[in-house]
């Protein structure tokens, strides 16, 4: 089971290095998605299934979609550019890394529920109990952070008319 962790760690490191060394923003985002999914697998192997699910749904899903929307808004997509994105050179790297992760998940499903750290049930309950017990002030603060975030993003995201600058 430990070997799965090391493979996922290698995938994470490789994909992360490719993120910061890539020139094209969309390629870098593809690699970042792979890195986030590999990190989610590591969370799962460390016994934090809820965190793994959130990592995929919120980080790999919502936040990366935001990034991709902004990349698309920054410049009109030329047909030539889209053609270059459909060549194998763009997607082979992230695909190979994602296939490695898929193999690991397949092995995990086939091997059954034998995680290296086995105090799942108590911790899963513990997270929700502690979150709405001692950490309730943190939940309130998080909601107070998200509302200004929403308003700030709405205010900053609009396009300013040329004459009012």
């Amino acid at each position: 089971m430990e070997i799965l962790f090391y493979i996922a760690a290698a995938v994470t490191l490789l994909a992360t290095v490719r993120v910061i060394t890539h020139v094209h923003a969309v390629h870098a985002l593809l690699y970042l998605v792979v890195a986030l999914i590999a990190l989610a697998l590591i969370f799962y192997l460390l016994g934090a299934q809820f965190a793994a699910a959130l990592e995929i749904i919120i980080y790999g899903g919502a936040i990366m979609v935001l990034f991709i929307f902004v990349v698309m808004l920054l410049g009109p997509l030329a047909v030539e550019q889209e053609k270059s994105w459909l060549t194998p050179g763009t997607w082979v790297g992230p695909n190979v890394l994602a296939l490695v992760l898929l193999g690991e998940v397949g092995y995990l499903i086939a091997a059954g529920d034998h995680l290296p750290i086995d105090f799942m049930e108590t911790r899963r309950k513990g997270v929700s109990i502690v979150l709405y017990g001692p950490y309730i002030i943190g939940v309130e603060l998080a909601s107070m952070l998200l509302l200004p975030g929403l308003i700030g993003a709405y205010h900053l995201g609009r396009r300013v008319p040329k004459e009012s600058r």
Binding site: L145, G149, L150
Partner: peptide
């Protein structure tokens, strides 16, 4: 074996979501 790590992860996730939405608005501007 404590739940605090995952709770901190939840808070970091919230922070990242708020930060990314505001920062991407700034990038657009």
């Amino acid at each position: 074996g404590q739940a605090d790590g995952e709770i901190m992860f939840l808070f970091i996730l919230t922070l990242a979501a708020a930060e990314v939405s505001v920062a991407l608005g700034i990038v657009l501007q």
